[in-house]
Amino acid sequence: MQNSHSGVNQLGGVFVNGRPLPDSTRQKIVELAHSGARPCDISRILQVSNGCVSKILGRYYETGSIRPRAIGGSKPRVATPEVVSKIAQYKRECPSIFAWEIRDRLLSEGVCTNDNIPSVSSINRVLRNLASEKQQMGADGMYDKLRMLNGQTGSWGTRPGWYPGTSVPGQPTQDGCQQQEGGGENTNSISSNGEDSDEAQMRLQLKRKLQRNRTSFTQEQIEALEKEFERTHYPDVFARERLAAKIDLPEARIQVWFSNRRAKWRREEKLRNQRRQASNTPSHIPISSSFSTSVYQPIPQPTTPVSSFTSGSMLGRTDTALTNTYSALPPMPSFTMANNLPMQPPVPSQTSSYSCMLPTSPSVNGRSYDTYTPPHMQTHMNSQPMGTSGTTSTGLISPGVSVPVQVPGSEPDMSQYWPRLQ
């Protein structure tokens, strides 16, 4: 039975679970980093996980050691009161100082060594604690504590007292930064006198190289990059290397530039699409467009005044059976039934097929058609009795279509119309 579990990581490298990497692998990681390889490249070359490479390099940059820390136990506290007071002093002298600059000053002034120097995250935590204590304490208590930490007896009751030896409130920041720059020169002199001055200088240079600022491109470089971006948004590694040799930039910087440029292009394309949609959409909808001609068919113009009344309900007709019959029939052209047409008796099958359309009241044959006459024609229609054979009435077949029909004066039988409509 094995005491430890061995495995293979996602890159194909072998590791022992819970145990640190061998010293030979750690040394190779540092050597590759000094030669300029990126952590992701080191991870692929040595088949070590990216997190492990970053952790080893980060500890090497901070402490200069590649040895693993002790497994188990607690780390001794490195942010001692003396170190905290120095950090507060540096922050007062130059409020814009960075944590890694404070760390360098602690090393250069001999406050800490490589073994007990606090990390950048520890210094940031100390600065946050100082800021929170400043908010919790009152103004007087804060000034007393700062005077105690600074070891001075001057008056701290006013704002300019934060910067000793100065009279203009805006000047101390520059003086403090100048003092810090002077301390940086002392850093070089002190570290050069040490035993491991060369190694420390190499480590600091490598650290500065990794902690780079934003790349500033010249106009020629920007023009070359934009020209390549117009050709393709995704250049391959050969195109990037050719462009890197042409404009004297690292291939990694060119790759990052193209990634950022593609993101910018997507944002601009989104804005262009929004403007295009806004320009195509009308600002207001016309009133006429809300009524579609496919839904509402136009009603033909009436030929006679009587045809303006298109349904039985508008003429005072309360018989719903006839109203439904007229509205359900398709529109037909106007025609006239003459008196000489043969009077065919209704076929029983045809009569039964339209039995649902006729009223059940037996008085329908005896009703006159003056009910369908509009009010303004009552006088004219009353002067001509319906009993004469020459009287013409208008029957409504569908809305908007008038059918003048000659009705025999002897017997106005409704059943004569249905064979004609089939």
Rank of each mutant, 00 (worst) to 15 (best):
Q2K: 15
N3I: 10
N3A: 13
S4G: 12
S4A: 13
H5L: 09
H5K: 14
S6C: 14
G7Y: 08
V8E: 04
N9G: 03
N9R: 03
Q10S: 11
Q10A: 14
L11M: 07
L11A: 06
G13C: 00
G13F: 03
G13S: 02
G13N: 01
G13V: 01
V14D: 04
V14K: 14
F15T: 02
F15Q: 04
F15A: 03
F15M: 02
V16P: 05
V16R: 14
N17L: 15
N17P: 15
G18A: 03
G18I: 00
G18H: 01
G18M: 01
P20Q: 02
P20S: 03
P20K: 00
L21W: 02
L21K: 02
L21D: 00
P22T: 02
P22Q: 04
P22D: 04
D23F: 09
S24K: 11
S24D: 08
S24Y: 11
S24R: 12
T25R: 08
T25P: 01
T25V: 09
R26E: 01
Q27A: 13
K28G: 05
I29F: 01
I29D: 01
I29E: 03
V30I: 09
E31Q: 13
L32T: 03
L32S: 04
H34C: 11
S35H: 11
S35P: 01
S35G: 11
A37V: 12
A37P: 01
A37M: 13
R38G: 03
R38E: 03
R38S: 04
P39W: 03
P39Q: 15
P39S: 09
P39D: 05
C40H: 01
C40D: 00
D41I: 07
D41A: 07
D41K: 06
I42P: 02
S43Y: 02
L46N: 00
L46Y: 01
Q47N: 02
Q47E: 04
Q47A: 13
V48L: 04
S49A: 02
S49P: 06
S49G: 00
N50T: 08
N50D: 04
G51Y: 03
G51S: 15
C52Y: 00
C52S: 09
V53E: 00
V53L: 05
V53T: 03
S54L: 03
S54K: 02
K55W: 04
K55M: 01
I56H: 00
I56S: 00
L57A: 02
G58P: 00
G58A: 15
Y60E: 07
Y60K: 08
E62W: 03
E62P: 00
E62I: 06
E62T: 12
T63L: 04
G64Y: 05
I66W: 15
R67T: 09
R69Q: 06
R69N: 10
A70R: 14
A70Q: 13
A70L: 07
A70M: 08
A70N: 12
I71S: 14
G72F: 03
G72N: 04
G73P: 01
G73H: 03
G73C: 02
G73E: 01
S74N: 01
S74C: 03
S74W: 03
K75S: 04
R77V: 02
R77L: 04
R77H: 02
V78K: 15
V78L: 03
A79Y: 02
A79V: 07
A79W: 00
A79H: 01
A79I: 10
T80P: 05
T80W: 02
P81Y: 07
P81C: 07
V83M: 03
V83T: 09
V84G: 03
S85E: 09
S85Q: 13
K86H: 14
I87N: 01
I87P: 01
A88G: 06
A88N: 12
A88T: 10
Q89H: 10
Q89G: 10
R92M: 12
E93I: 13
C94E: 12
P95A: 12
S96T: 14
S96D: 14
S96R: 14
I97Y: 15
F98C: 07
F98K: 10
A99T: 08
A99G: 14
A99F: 01
A99N: 05
W100T: 07
W100I: 06
W100L: 06
E101M: 15
I102D: 00
I102G: 04
I102C: 03
I102S: 04
I102N: 00
R103Y: 05
D104Q: 14
R105N: 09
R105L: 13
L106T: 00
L106S: 02
L107V: 10
S108W: 10
S108V: 12
S108C: 11
S108E: 10
E109T: 12
E109R: 13
G110M: 08
G110E: 10
V111D: 10
V111K: 08
T113S: 11
T113I: 12
N114S: 11
N114E: 12
N114R: 13
D115I: 14
D115S: 14
D115K: 15
D115W: 08
N116T: 08
N116I: 09
I117W: 15
I117N: 15
I117P: 08
I117Y: 14
I117D: 08
P118I: 07
V120F: 04
S121V: 05
S121Q: 07
N124R: 11
N124F: 04
R125K: 05
R125I: 05
V126P: 03
R128T: 02
R128F: 05
R128L: 04
R128H: 04
N129H: 14
L130V: 13
A131T: 07
S132D: 08
E133W: 09
E133M: 13
E133L: 10
Q135V: 09
Q135N: 14
Q136M: 11
Q136P: 10
M137L: 13
M137H: 12
M137V: 10
A139G: 13
D140V: 14
D140P: 12
G141Y: 10
G141P: 15
M142Q: 12
M142F: 15
M142T: 10
M142K: 11
M142Y: 11
D144A: 09
D144H: 11
K145Y: 14
K145Q: 13
L146A: 12
R147Y: 09
R147P: 15
M148H: 15
L149I: 09
L149T: 15
L149A: 14
